[in-house]
Amino acid sequence: MGITSGRGRLRTVSATAAVLALSGTGLVAYGLSKQDTATPPSPGRSTAAAESPSGAASSPPPARKGAAYAVPQGDVLDRSQPTRVRIPSLKVDTDVIDLGLQPNRRMEVPQNGKQAGWFTGSPTPGQLGPSIVAAHVTWQSKRGVFFELGAMKPGQRIEVDRQDGTTAAFQVDQVGQYPKASFPTEKVYGTVDRAELRLITCGGVYDGDSGHHLDNIVVFAHLVPSTAPHAHHTG
């Protein structure tokens, strides 16, 4: 319907469109509006339903709709192990090793203050789900590679190089500090419907009696297009 051409006729056309919206085409529009956007509807089906010739014309049959088809949000990458992590705002640029689980089911941590480690039980960075990368805040009287992690801000960028030669770029959503005694396991490790990254380090007050920091700092981030450094793009 060419309802947008001719500036002078705009008002008339608008009125016509309004009338149309209340009549036949309205049914199609209603049908379309009831469809979920994740699965583009077939206008043909909606129209056919609206024009159902089944005699009982007292009330139009409800437009047929399918429920949403649940799929991951945004892009996800194929599996590829991380090799390097960069945090430009903190001037962090370090290689990434593998971390497994200890026999007591606590996560292993790097045996030095300079490397970061990827938890092998988590998705690789860029895959669907929460990918876990940890590094030390302190190590043998020196600053660890994630020393300043708690100073990160939402919107900042994290880049992870992967074995397949690709770089997965992430944007920080949230920075949290949690007592280890009440670590938010579900929030950090639980189900998400996009490719996300967690950077974890120690934080908070150091408890000399136990030899541990009392808190963990967790940076939550999600995958963004690696070609859009500031999450802006034209078009």
């Binding site: 996560m107 590094a135 030390h136 043998q140 541990h212």
Partner: peptide
């Protein structure tokens, strides 16, 4: 959606306080 399959227990010991 996806989660961490074999979830670690508790927090992460990333800092030796030194």
């Amino acid at each position: 959606g996806a989660s961490v399959g074999a979830e670690p227990t508790g927090g992460v010991d990333t800092g030796d306080g030194t």
